[in-house]
C-alpha cells in the first residue's frame, strides 16, 4: 500500500496469466454446444440432434421402424377404404 509497485515486472505478468486462465476457465465452463462440452453432438460439418437418452417413453429402434412402416400402410389402407366406399370424404 505504502509503496506503489513499479509498473511491469513479475507481478503484472502473473496477473495477466491469471486473467487469461480465468477467462479460459470461464469459456470452458459455459460450452456453447453439446460437443463443446464433450458429449458428442453436431460437429463442424455434421448436424446431429440426439445424443443423450432423456426420460420418456422408451422405445426400441426396431419398434420405431416397424411402426413407421405400419403408419404408411395404414395410410395406404385409408386410400383403399376411401375408394371402396366412394365419396366418404
Amino acid at each position: 500500500m505504502s509503496t506503489p509497485t513499479p509498473p511491469g515486472g513479475h507481478r503484472t505478468l502473473q496477473k495477466r496469466r491469471q486473467a487469461q486462465s480465468a477467462k479460459e476457465k470461464q469459456q470452458k465452463q459455459s460450452p456453447a454446444s453439446t460437443r463443446q462440452a464433450g458429449f458428442g453432438g453436431s460437429s463442424n460439418s455434421v448436424l446431429k440432434l440426439y445424443t443423450d437418452e432423456a426420460n420418456g417413453l422408451r422405445v426400441d429402434p426396431l419398434v420405431v421402424l416397424f411402426l413407421a412402416v405400419g403408419f404408411i400402410f395404414s395410410v395406404v389402407a385409408l386410400h383403399v377404404v376411401a375408394k371402396v366406399t366412394g365419396k366418404l370424404f
Binding site: 440426439y50 432423456a54 426420460n55 420418456g56 417413453l57 422408451r58 422405445v59 426400441d60 420405431v64
Partner: peptide, 10 residues
C-alpha cells in the same frame, strides 16, 4: 411433456 415424448433407447 417429457413423460409423453417417445425416446429411442441408446
Amino acid at each position: 411433456f417429457l413423460p409423453l415424448l417417445p425416446e429411442v433407447e441408446l
